[in-house]
Design a protein around this nucleic acid. Structure first.
Lengths: 357, 357
DNA sequence: TTGAAAGCGCTAACAT
DNA sequence: ATGTTAGCGCTTTCAA
């Protein structure tokens, strides 16, 4: 790829064919000024004579000069890179969050160093560690679990950090999340309103704070309506397969629930599979309500109801807090909780009329 | 967050409370050696006396020293950061690709600067530009379109680049992709084998090279079987909504196709929606075959058949090529094409028996 | 208003 | 085997 003749006029190569970056020094000598002046033009700091500004700008254009961020960062001791570590990128919710954050960051001249912890605390730690070595301006982190391994590391380094999504209360970090309890509380109430009494909540693992909040919301609503005894919570933990198996076993028993409230996207998938396998129709035989709204839910027939997390707002608040910190805000840790919305679709309806046995 | 008493013993702060990084100099003086020795220990270059190695290592541990990648990069003029620019992160396929790449990169001590072009060529260019200013060791790029705006920029800078997924033939860049033509050829043949004659292919836009290859594969197979006249290709371009509308109109006409081959994931969603709206059962009334295999497809009843792209292998080959380039390989551009697999599930079956009108 | 010069933290010659 | 030193490309006093 080196000697194919497409080398442009503005690229500089040395005798060995290695590309040689255009530095501030090249620009300075070509423009007949000092490197300090070039730097001043670059940063618009001290007042430089307009004609010099023009000349330097022209030369920079001709030479294709671009500031070396590495050198610049080393000298000013502040960088325009922010680290983002997520438990996974394969959740549509987190992928959307990452996309929004990247957009906001880029719009403000920041770059994102992205790491996936693969739902593993050790990997999370090693990602965070590697990013700290880059002297990132800040870290945005959705911790894998509540023990939050990288805590002490981040504190020691005094890196500006915003925790997103998987927030944990006993934290002195800024955090932006969703009011899970409120969300499932409202959603469960709605199910009860339309007539459901036997509701089965399907979660993943109680050790995830978010999940625990969702379960609490569900059980609180059930208790408030006095139907705790006919409601259940299934928390088999693990992946799609193990949730599916647990649900499979439950659906062999009677009576069947009239509504299934899946408390996560993977629970929704499991429920869809098991209800489908049993030939149960939605919403005639059983209603289905999910948590996390994905595109495919809306195109199914019937479309699946879901609690939707406000991705855009989550990203906006997270990035705002990050910028405030970067710009020197040293106020106490803030905790932002946003409300979810309930997307009520055709998969949820009144329960079937009871036929006495 | 600054004066809460949780400051660890290893962090150093100056009088103003700003955290002060531990540098190689601190380590050197604490260990009673020169900074060169510390550097040598860090990089394991020249032979250092074992006892000194041990002492330096201990001190580094005690002080919580971590090498400053920015300074290191500036000096050695090579970095361990690779840029990854994708048209979107919200496609499960690309999210999975990004995850795999990040894993491979991290395992080799590399970090990924990730950018989302949001399907927009201008944004792609501006992402690439920003990354080049960081002197990334290489760029992995899934171009938004075939014009591939950032081409000249990348060439001028001589950055090692691997094009992934959206490869374009007239390219002198390394590329790793999938054999789209072969994939749809095989899949279409299979549909024909089980008896389909009226097959409707639903794509997105012909201006995307991948899509064009898929269409060609489909039409070639149809022509080879002599059923071109009863097959159609729909390419409305745009998003889920506009594909849905186009498909909606087509399904109002007769005769209906006996099989729908959705040539992308968004086409699959549109097809699912429209078939569902029309009350057409799969596979009794019409078979559905998708391109790009997602988790939700397997849990539906019936499970949706799909052409699966080998994400893991794609990532592996891409990263391998990147590493070869970084390690100095200057051979000609390579073009890797991987085979897709056909996940034949219950949504595809023999067509219904024709009832003479 | 412009320029000379001192480093940011690290690596790699080159001395010792 | 260890230390001294000159930068990497840039920003930023401080002088002129």
């Amino acid at each position: 790829m080196n000697d194919q003749g497409w080398q442009s006029a503005v690229s500089m190569r040395d005798a060995k064919g290695n590309s040689q970056r255009v530095t501030i020094r090249h620009v300075a000598s070509a423009a007949g000024v000092s490197i300090a002046t070039v730097s001043n033009v670059l940063n618009g700091r001290t007042s430089v004579a307009p004609e010099l500004v023009a000349r330097v700008r022209t030369v920079m254009g001709e030479l294709g000069y671009q500031r070396d961020q590495v050198a610049s960062t080393l000298r000013r001791r502040q960088t325009s890179v922010v680290g983002l570590v997520l438990p996974t990128l394969m959740s549509p919710f987190l992928a959307a969050l990452a996309t929004r954050l990247e957009g906001l960051a880029h719009a403000q001249g920041f770059q994102l160093l992205v790491g996936s912890a693969n739902e593993d605390a050790e990997q999370e730690l090693s990602r965070v560690q590697a990013m700290l070595a880059w002297r990132v301006a800040g870290m945005i982190l959705a911790p894998v679990d509540k023990r939050f391994v990288s805590q002490s590391l981040i504190r020691d380094q005094g890196v500006k950090t915003v925790i997103v999504d998987r927030t944990s209360d006993h934290s002195d970090f800024d955090s932006v999340g969703v009011n899970n309890l409120e969300a499932t509380l409202v959603a469960t109430r709605r199910l009860i309103e339309v007539g459901h009494r036997r509701i089965l909540a399907v979660g993943t693992s109680r050790s995830i704070p978010n999940m625990l909040e969702r379960i609490t919301g569900f059980e609180t609503a059930a208790a408030a309506a006095g139907i705790s005894s006919s409601c259940e919570t299934l928390c088999p933990g693990g992946d799609l397969f193990s949730i599916g198996k647990a649900l499979h076993r439950r659906l062999q028993q009677r009576p069947l629930p009239t509504a299934v409230f899946a408390l996560s996207d993977v629970s929704t998938l499991a429920a869809l599979q098991e209800l489908g396998d049993r030939g149960l129709r939605m919403p005639e035989d059983v209603s289905l309500l999910g948590f996390d709204d994905h595109e495919w839910m809306q195109v199914l027939r019937p479309p699946i109801s879901a609690v939707r997390q406000p991705t855009d707002e989550l990203a906006r608040h997270t990035w705002n807090r990050m910028m405030q910190r970067i710009q020197g805000d040293v106020s106490g840790a803030s905790r932002i909780q946003l409300a979810c919305s309930l997307e009520w679709r055709a998969s949820t309806a009144a329960p079937p009329v009871e036929v006495p046995a």
